[in-house]
């Protein structure tokens, strides 16, 4: 049986290998770089306490689910600060500072970030799970605890909004056929 040292080693390896990806996922989900780190930190702390049980299953999926749940829960706990799921200013800062690419990556990310900020919380979660995490509609529905039809309709609405966003003007998500 693995001892505590081995457990910590395994967990440490997981954090080093996957936490940056989780933070990226959380940033896309909430649109706030600092809040995203809080979300992932909290989810990982909870995962550590259950590591023996989840290690052999799908730890990344477990922590990602915890991030989603925690995100939804935190939004619920901030009723008087409720706002659209993305704050353009925060997103803008994140997307501008996340890369230093002279070939247009910054502009592209700023545009995508601004467009994501126009989505509702659910639409945004669907887009992030579908296109960042590459989950199927069924998997996305399972993570969000909603019906597949809800995912489909939210995804369609989100893509419509992204197409209509002036920052994108049909780039990246194309025009409806």
């Amino acid at each position: 049986m693995a001892g505590p040292g081995s457990r910590d080693d395994d967990f440490t390896a997981f954090v080093l290998a996957r936490s940056a990806r989780l933070v990226h996922f959380a940033r896309m989900l909430c649109g706030d770089a600092e809040l995203a780190e809080d979300l992932v930190q909290t989810a990982l702390e909870k995962a550590y306490l259950r590591w023996d049980r989840i290690e052999l299953a799908d730890p990344f999926g477990y922590v990602r689910q915890a991030v989603v749940n925690q995100h939804l829960s935190w939004v619920r706990r901030r009723p008087w600060r409720e706002r659209p799921s993305g704050d353009a200013g925060e997103l803008d800062r994140y997307f501008r500072t996340s890369v230093a690419d002279p070939a247009g990556a910054v502009a592209r990310r700023v545009a995508i970030g601004a467009a994501l900020a126009t989505l509702t919380r659910r639409e945004r979660a669907v887009v992030v799970l579908r296109y960042v995490e590459d989950l199927t509609e069924k998997q996305t529905a399972a993570v969000l605890g909603v019906a597949v039809g809800t995912v489909k309709s939210a995804n369609a609405r989100a893509l419509d909004k992204l197409r209509a966003a002036p920052e994108l003007s049909g780039r990246y998500v194309g025009e409806r056929a």
């Binding site: 936490s19 940056a20 990226h24 940033r27 296109y131 960042v132 893509l159 992204l162 990246y172 998500v173």
Partner: peptide, 24 residues
């Protein structure tokens, strides 16, 4: 178009991993 969106949302290398010791 969805492929374009996937590419646009790809992570970059600017995010550092969290500190495992701090998490533990």
């Amino acid at each position: 178009p969805e492929d374009d969106l996937r590419v646009a949302l790809l992570p970059d290398d600017s995010i550092a991993p969290l500190d495992p010791a701090r998490v533990i």
